[in-house]
Amino acid sequence: MKFIRIILFPLVPIYYVVTYLRNKLFDYGVFKSKSYDVPVICVGNLSTGGTGKTPMIEYLITLLKENKSVAALSRGYKRNTEGFLLAGENSTVESIGDEPYQFHNKFQDIKVAVDADRQNGIESLLKLNDAPEIILLDDAFQHRRVKAGFNILLTSYDKPYYKDFVLPTGNLREPQVGRKRADVVIVTKCKPTLNEDEKATILERLHLNDKQSAFFSYIDYSDVVLNSDNALKLEALSKFTLVTGIANPKPLVDYLTNQGLTFDHIEYPDHHNFRSHEIDLLLKKELILTTEKDFVRLKSIKGFEKNLFYLPIRFRLDDASKFEAIIKNYTD
C-alpha cells in the first residue's frame, strides 16, 4: 500500500490544485454555501480519518444536552439506506451506520440523523415539530455547501496536518491552508507526558491566526472492560484478542502494551463490514476486546454475548473550561 502511494506522487499536485480551487470557489461565492439561524457546530479534519471525531462529538453532546435540545447529523457511512433518516427504536448499525448508531445507543435524549446531503439533513431536522436548538455535524469540514457557524478542526498528535501530504500519497483531503476555516483546532490523542515546550512547538507549526484557538486533548482509558451484561477489570485479563476496525488503532495498541497485557491483534479497516468467515474466526476466540464502535457492530451477532467486551474511553481537554466557555458563548 505504501509503495502504491509513493508511485502515485505525481498525482499529488493535481489533487492539490483541484481541491484548492474548489475551496476558493466557495470562498468567493461562486459555489454557494448556506447558513442557518440555529447554532451549527461542525467537527471534522483535514485528513481521511483517525483523529477522534466520535469522542469529540460525544464530548459536545454531553456538554450541551442538559440545557439545549441537540441533534447529531452524520453521513451514515456504509449504511444500507439512502436519504434522510432519523434514528429510532428500530434503527440498526446497518440502517444508520456504526458511529451514528453509537450516538443513538448512548444518548437517548438527543436526536441522531443521517444524510449524505447535509443541507437536506439540517432542513429535515428543522422541519420536525420538536426541532433541535443545536446541530452537531459529524465529519463535515469539507462539506462546504453548509456554512457552519462554528468549525472545530481535529488533527492527531502522531500525524498532524503539517507533517502530511494531500491524497493520494498522503492522507489530507485538502491542502493545509484549509485550516484557516477553523475557529478551534484541537490536537488529539496526545501522549500523557506532553510538556509545555512540546506544546509551544506544535502551536507554532499549526500556523494559526489570532482569531483561532488551539487545545490539546487526551484519551483516558477505563480500568474496566464492559459488555451488555458484565464488567471485568482490565488488569485481570490474562490473554485476549484485540479486534479493531478503526482508522488508527495505534494509541490503543500502545496503551494495552504498556499495561503489560498479553494479546494478539486482528486489525480491520475503518468501518469494516465483517464477513461470515471473519465472524466464524472471531467466534473461536476465547475473549475479544474491541473498541466501542466495533462493539456496537458485533454485539448483536449470535455467539458474542459472553466473550465480547469493549474498553470505554474518555475524551479529555487540557483547558476544558476555556473551550467550554467558547462553545457556550457561541450556542447561547
Rank of each mutant, 00 (worst) to 15 (best):
T48F: 10
G49Q: 07
G49P: 04
G50S: 01
G52I: 01
G52L: 02
K53G: 12
K53M: 10
T54R: 06
P55I: 05
M56G: 10
M56K: 09
M56C: 15
I57H: 15
I57K: 14
I57T: 14
E58T: 13
L60D: 09
T62W: 12
T62H: 15
L63W: 04
L64V: 07
L64E: 01
L64W: 01
E66Q: 05
E66H: 09
E66D: 12
N67V: 00
K68P: 05
S69K: 15
S69C: 03
V70R: 07
V70L: 07
A72P: 04
R75L: 12
G76C: 06
Y77S: 09
K78P: 05
R79K: 06
N80I: 15
T81I: 02
T81S: 13
T81K: 08
E82N: 12
E82V: 04
E82P: 02
E82M: 03
F84T: 11
F84Y: 15
F84A: 10
F84M: 08
F84L: 05
L86T: 08
L86V: 08
L86D: 10
L86R: 12
A87L: 03
N90F: 13
N90V: 02
N90S: 12
V93K: 12
E94D: 15
E94S: 14
S95T: 15
D98T: 14
E99T: 03
P100V: 00
Y101N: 13
Y101C: 11
F103R: 08
F103L: 11
H104D: 05
H104V: 06
K106Q: 07
K106W: 03
F107A: 12
Q108W: 02
Q108L: 10
D109H: 14
